[in-house]
Design a protein around this nucleic acid. Sequence first.
DNA 1: ATAATTGCAAATGCTTTGCTTGTGA
DNA 2: TCACAAGCAAAGCATTTGCAATTAT
Lengths: 136, 136
Amino acid sequence: MKSVIEDLCVKRGVRLTDQRKVIAKVMSDSNDHPDVDELHKRVNKHDNKISIATVYRTVKLFEEAGVVAKHDFKGSKARYEEIPEQHHDHLIDVNTGEITEFVNEDIEKLQKKVAEKLGYKLVDHRLELYGSKIKK
Amino acid sequence: MKSVIEDLCVKRGVRLTDQRKVIAKVMSDSNDHPDVDELHKRVNKHDNKISIATVYRTVKLFEEAGVVAKHDFKGSKARYEEIPEQHHDHLIDVNTGEITEFVNEDIEKLQKKVAEKLGYKLVDHRLELYGSKIKK
DNA sequence: ATAATTGCAAATGCTTTGCTTGTGA
DNA sequence: TCACAAGCAAAGCATTTGCAATTAT
């Protein structure tokens, strides 16, 4: 059965090899934000002949095709996630590295407004919150 | 005459060598966001025996001492700036790389609120807007 | 058929580090 | 004095790439 990412690739004319299908499935099945090493490990459970170079090439390809998102959080290597239905930003636990997703329309609107006031059309943004858990 | 960064270093007990004084001065005199290579070039105009390794070690030291800020904007290497009196965020021109600083208290407050609602104390954040100039 | 993709290992680019010599407080 | 810093070159780490063999359409 086709993964969400695989479907999107077909729609966008991305050539699908066996390796790409496996990587697409692994990413679609992930609910976290794995880095390339972790993806490679997960992918290798399905096919241990897929090289890490291919994983690197594929996540880049998927990113350029707009089917996965890349994140460079402070102090860690690049992480990836399937493009979500709804845009969200991230809060990173500075102690554990745990990532929480959130949506805030007010902030989104304000960003657009700030950019426009400065004479720019907002084409992208990055918002990351770093926090430590409040014990109650 | 002592630079702002040099002053701060004294206050925080950071040992000041000739090299560090030069690097501090160059950074205090910069109004942009130079990367390490660019800093090294500027520093070398004052003393061409200062190695790039020292520049790397020093910006890291300054950053840990809280006297300079490091930024990792999308698609470029690490850039540095003197810690500003007032906190600000950045808008990056996706076409030219030009950086504009801005302050928005409403966004700041909302970020804090979002973190708290998720059970976190906000200890840091990253907000970057990427835009293209609107021609008028 | 054939242009694109893979695996491998080597190369890259930025940053850090070991070691010896030099130096600030 | 002497713990710390600098310069140099080598190492490290994540990522990219050249090339020959393989594969999707």
